[in-house]
């Protein structure tokens, strides 16, 4: 039998998963076993998924972009714009969501195509182009409407967002004080996010486009010499990222049911840090969607633990940021150490 060697990247992924287990375990023991505040319930885990459904979609797109060695910092603003379009369209213009949802997805594709063209074909730095995209989307949000628009009118979008998808076979069901059986549930956004993760994972692993993304990120020149269309691959990556971001925007809107100009501020950095924690390198060529998914879960768990801890909550909403920055530091140090080790092995 051929012995499978574990390479450094697999180790990074394993560390990510291990860290998630440790972190969640710590929360479980402190707030589920020692103090019974409810962390032990399955619902807590599902709530992490529920609040981060949009981020999961976006982190998948970000992973693809980072695989090609680029970066996309326009995602947060694009989410805000999508939410605003959905909210204003449904509330003020009374357009059916049947039209609006495909329209938002189309906007994502067009937005990504423009940025992808500028980056791929005109060879402009991704940071600058997506920064312009970020300004544009954020400003557009304010142009559409500067107020907070709540979606109050009932339509199928609102009904869809309100659907509770209960766990099958009553997994993790608990009986509360009044004797009512509570079955843990997720919403549709979570299902969308999970489907996105699986599809992007399969795409990166088995399709020509997915493999090209790895190749382009590994080395532009080698990819070009191999006969891959580097420019086209880059453009497709940004289209994919913006498209996934639009899906994320729809998920985000399902959770918040409103559109404001300050929505999803800093979401791009959350997505990037999730991807980095998940083992994706900014230099490109290395990474995994599953890692990014776990990265999002780690960030969500930190937030959840902080919300369970009364002392930390009193300090304000910034504690998760400090903790997640520290974890980010831990991770990139680990990555750096592995990179050094590998260098030594080769050299």
């Amino acid at each position: 039998m051929k012995k499978k060697s574990i390479n450094n990247h697999t180790i990074l992924l394993l560390i990510t998963v291990g860290l998630f287990i440790i972190l969640y375990g710590a929360g479980y023991i402190s707030y589920g076993v020692i103090e019974t505040k409810g962390f032990e319930k399955l619902q807590t885990f599902l709530d992490i998924l529920r609040t981060n459904a949009a981020l999961i979609c976006i982190a998948c797109g970000m992973t693809c972009v980072m695989l090609t060695g680029g970066i996309d910092i326009s995602v947060g603003s694009l989410v805000a714009m999508d939410c605003m379009i959905l909210a204003v369209g449904m509330e003020y213009q009374e357009i059916s969501p049947t039209l609006l949802v495909p329209f938002v997805l189309l906007i994502g594709i067009v937005f990504g195509a423009v940025m992808g063209y500028l980056i791929g074909y005109l060879d402009i730095q991704p940071f600058i182009v997506t920064m312009a995209g970020m300004f544009f989307a954020r400003g557009m949000t304010a142009m559409i409407c500067t107020d907070q628009v709540n979606i109050a009118k009932s339509n199928w979008f609102k009904d869809l967002a309100a659907i509770k998808v209960y766990m099958p076979f009553d997994i993790g069901a608990v009986v509360n004080k009044r004797g009512v059986k509570m079955v843990p549930y997720v919403n549709v956004a979570v299902l969308i996010a999970l489907v996105v993760v699986i599809l992007v994972f399969l795409m990166l692993r088995y399709t020509r486009t997915g493999r090209s993304m790895y190749a382009v990120g590994g080395s532009h020149t080698s990819a070009a010499l191999m006969g891959l269309n580097v420019k086209r691959t880059k453009m497709i990556t940004y289209i994919l990222s913006s498209f996934l971001c639009s899906i994320g925007g729809i998920c985000y809107c399902m959770n918040t049911m409103c559109g404001t100009t300050t929505q999803a501020l800093g979401l791009e950095m959350k997505a990037i840090s999730s991807a980095v924690i998940g083992g994706t390198l900014l230099t490109g060529g290395v990474g995994n969607v599953f890692g990014s998914f776990v990265g999002v879960l780690i960030n969500g768990t930190i937030q959840s633990i902080v919300s369970f801890n009364a002392d930390l909550t009193r300090l304000g909403g910034t504690v998760p940021n400090v903790v997640s920055a520290f974890l980010l530091f831990l991770f990139i140090m680990l990555q750096a150490v592995f990179a050094k080790l590998r260098e030594r092995k080769q050299g």
């Binding site: 970066i71 940071f127 950095m269 990037i272 840090s273 980095v276 390198l281 900014l282 230099t283 940021n321 400090v322 997640s324 920055a325 520290f326 980010l328 530091f329 990139i332 990555q335 750096a336 990179a339 050094k340």
Partner: peptide, 14 residues
């Protein structure tokens, strides 16, 4: 030898 953007992302957040 960490990419500048990732390295500075730490204090961007913190």
């Amino acid at each position: 030898k960490i990419q500048p953007m990732v390295a500075t992302l730490i204090f961007f957040t913190a």
